[in-house]
């Protein structure tokens, strides 16, 4: 069985020292090993941004695509080969600005993939502009007077879009993050894991210390029931979206692959492409 070390490669990340994304990478590697995957059984599809580089730093199949489109690519991979474990990942700009349309629809579609967002409330790669996750009043290069747009709540959006798995974590909390990623990968449907992953270079407000101060860990509420969607929505709102842990899971809804008529359990990519003469004749006869 593969250990987490086998999910490492020799590429040196070009992230700034201290960037939250390092821990997200480590958590993915640990989670993959913990659930018994071999590197070739995992595909990590990422968007563009500092965070998007993550697929190149994990020893697994990886595709680093275009800005905001990690999810549709990842869904295509899963449709083609449902035997693979598929992770999509990227930044908050990638998933909640340019790719927001895909995020909502990937949630609705509920293919069995895990979406990990490295949420640093800013655009890192383009050197510090506002993100939909930035707080109102947040000053960046593109909002010198402070952001005047409201902050987007991905957790609320996910729940209202019909998400079957919603979790949030903090890159410093490796243990929680790893176990949530494991749970997400094992969930039979779409899982969203939003991870507070500080940008130490451009975000001087939402720092490690700031997160430690503001985060509300769901462990504090032993009676919390993640299968209750209304309670989940309430908790998100009560905590101003700062809660971490497994927020909601619906274990009953079937995944897209399981519902699609004609879709078998075997990877479509492994099936024979050829059409028999009989099949061909039958298709053609319909046009007579």
């Amino acid at each position: 069985m593969a250990t987490f070390k086998e999910f490492r490669n020799n590429v040196k990340p070009n992230w700034c020292p201290g960037c939250g994304d390092f821990s997200v990478q480590a958590s993915i590697q640990r989670a993959a090993a913990n659930i018994g995957l071999e590197p070739h059984q995992l595909a990590v599809i990422s968007g563009i941004g500092c965070s998007g580089r993550i697929s190149g730093y994990i020893n697994a199949y990886g595709l680093h695509g275009i800005h905001g489109r990690a999810l549709p690519i990842a869904q295509g991979v899963k449709l083609a080969n449902r035997e693979l474990t598929v992770i999509a990942s990227g930044g908050d700009g990638d998933g909640f600005a340019i790719g927001m349309g895909h995020t909502v629809h990937a949630i609705r579609r509920n293919l069995d993939i895990t979406y990990i967002v490295m949420d640093n409330q800013i655009y890192g790669l383009t050197k510090g502009q506002t993100s939909p996750r930035s707080a109102e009043g947040f000053k960046t290069k593109s909002t010198p007077e402070g952001s005047i747009e409201s902050t987007l709540s991905p957790l609320e959006i996910a729940l209202s879009a019909g998400a079957t798995f919603v979790a949030q974590s903090f890159s410093s909390d490796l243990k929680q993050l790893t176990s949530l990623i494991e749970a997400g990968m094992q969930h039979k449907g779409f899982s969203l894991i939003n991870v507070f992953s500080p940008c130490v270079t451009f975000n001087k407000v939402n720092t490690y210390d700031w997160f430690k101060e503001h985060i509300v860990n769901l462990e504090q509420f032993p009676e919390y029931d993640p299968s209750n969607r209304i309670a989940a929505m309430n908790k998100i709102m009560e905590t101003g979206g700062m809660l971490t842990g497994l927020i909601y899971q619906d274990k009953n809804r079937k995944s897209y692959e399981d519902m699609a008529v004609g879709f078998g359990q075997e990877a479509l990519a492994k099936q024979d492409l050829s059409l028999s003469r009989e099949q061909f004749d039958k298709l053609v006869a319909e046009f007579k």
Binding site: A43, I45, I73, G76, V77, A80, L84, K270
Partner: peptide, 11 residues
Amino acid sequence: TMAIGANYAGV
């Protein structure tokens, strides 16, 4: 992009 993902994965 979905078509690209699926072609990449062999369908």
